[in-house]
Design a protein around this nucleic acid. Structure first.
Length: 430
RNA sequence: UCCGGCGUAGCUCAAUCGGUAGAGCGGGUGGCUGUUAACCACUAGGUUGUAGGUUCAAGUCCUACCGCCGGAGCCA
């Protein structure tokens, strides 16, 4: 008996195989029985005539409930009437467990109900497809950097310092001392870049923002490259190559899943470098020409980002934002002291910011001034300032939000479907 | 945190001017030899989010609270 998985079934036409899985659905018509089996790799239709299967198996079928676990033996054959083109002529079913009445029926459900049953919702075909795309994107991130000689140097999750400001931090206690869950691996990444040249970190990050939108999670994953001797232009090149690579990898390896999600593949196909590069100044002008009441110095709102990205059919890079609205470590533009050498990448179709980053302040005295200006405590940044004392070099980096990237590539409107167990303002269960 | 909306069967929803709870799906039972979220017949299933209030009468009106959904600020 050949033990196999549904996605490999095509190799065994005419042979008897055994598959372990769960009952996705069943139908019957007189002395004829159909079941759809799910094994994690795909769905397969099984057919059984009363005369072909043994008696125990035939009566067992009628007791099977949705999501019951079982082992099915049968002969593989090609049949155009079966979804996927192959079906199993069932000879024998071995029961593992009869499932209790399964809460998620094949009909419609509301968001709150599905989120309460996220641990079961993962079994549904769309959720399955999204998480397969996520898996592909994560492997592609690692491959991209590894192939280019970047070293993975992960940053800690417990930290004593706030990298972006103190409002959105999750506080915790660390053996009697105050600690925070990391918002970004960047500061540690800079230390790693001074050790290894080009590095990246990849892990969960935490932000206690009371943001109740489709574009925010309190726990999300970020991949952050950091490069010694890179300037802003080098970093824009890297961001372009990176996003192009991710999208093309998913198109190549997860086309089936994108089709199931009804994603417009043509739009994704257009995501190839170069991307439009627009300065903040020019972006403001574009908005004002469209009649938007936007004042220089403000940050773009979700609506503004959509207006800007709708001008193009690829991601766009917006660079050199006003310095005052940016984090303390951003390097000032030597051409214009009001601007920071930073970049954001906005995904097309209104998906908004997927990358934020820029060149870091590499001069010790400038960095000290910036810490003072932002009223941040010096003690916790002592080690960080050391990086500017011992062989400081120009360097830059960025962070890409995994869930926003998955949402954009999958064409999902809400981030909660792009991570297995989302953590939201009003949800920490299941 | 602010603004708006919604809480009715396991799920998705309906219930006219305030007049006493209804359908589809799912479950159960029976039927059907090619079904695709199968179909057909029958059937069980309700303290209408919680606590007050108005009224002869409240799912429906009022107040408070709780929960969820959508949006905003901020960000990846």
């Amino acid at each position: 008996m050949i033990q196999t998985y549904i996605n490999e079934i095509g190799q065994y036409v005419g042979k008897e195989v055994s598959i372990k899985g769960w009952l996705y659905n069943k139908r019957s018509s007189g002395k004829l029985r159909f079941l759809t089996l799910r094994d994690g790799t795909g769905l397969l239709q099984g057919v059984m005539f009363k005369d072909d299967a043994d008696e125990g198996t035939f009566s067992l079928f009628d007791r099977l409930t949705q999501e019951s676990s079982l082992k099915v033996n049968g002969v593989v054959r090609q049949d155009h009437r079966a979804p996927g083109g192959y079906e199993l002529a069932i000879r024998r079913i071995e029961l593992i467990q009869i499932a209790e009445e399964y809460p998620i029926s094949p009909k419609e459900h509301g968001t709150a109900f599905l989120m309460d049953h996220r641990h079961l919702w993962l079994r549904s075909s769309k959720q399955h497809a999204i998480l397969l795309v996520r898996d592909e994107i994560i492997s592609a991130c690692r491959d991209f950097f590894h192939e280019r000689g970047f070293v993975l140097v992960d940053a800690p999750i417990f930290t004593p310092n706030a990298s972006e400001g103190t409002t959105a931090l999750f506080e915790t206690e660390y053996f009697g001392e105050q600690a925070y869950l990391t918002q970004s691996g960047q500061l540690y990444n800079e230390a790693a870049a001074m050790a290894f040249g080009r590095v990246y970190c990849f892990g969960p990050t935490f932000r206690a923002e009371k943001a109740k939108t489709r574009r925010h999670l309190t726990e999300f994953w970020m991949v952050e490259p950091e490069m010694a001797f890179y300037d802003l232009a080098d970093t824009m090149d890297l961001a372009e190559d990176f996003i192009t690579y991710l999208v093309q990898r998913v198109l190549k390896n997860k086309e089936k899943e994108l089709i199931l999600l009804e994603r417009d593949l043509e739009k994704l196909g257009k995501v190839v470098k170069p991307f439009p590069r627009i300065s903040y100044d020019d972006s403001v002008q574009i908005l004002q020409e469209k009649g938007i009441d936007f004042k220089w110095g403000e940050d773009f709102g979700a609506a503004d980002e959509t207006i800007l990205s709708n001008e193009f059919d690829k991601p766009i890079i917006i660079h050199r934002y006003p310095l005052k609205s940016k984090a303390f470590y951003m390097k000032t533009d030597p051409q214009n002291h009001q601007l920071a050498l930073c970049l954001d990448v906005l995904a097309p179709e209104g998906y908004g910011e997927i990358i934020g980053g820029g060149q870091r302040e590499d001069k010790l005295d400038e960095l000290e001034k910036k810490i003072k200006k932002h009223k941040l405590p010096f003690e916790v940044f002592k080690w960080y300032l050391d990086l500017r004392r011992y062989g400081s070099v120009p360097h830059a980096g960025f962070g890409l939000g995994i869930e926003r990237t998955v949402a954009w590539i999958c064409g999902r409107s809400h981030l909660r479907e792009t991570i297995p167990f989302p953590r939201l303002l009003s949800r920490i269960y299941p």
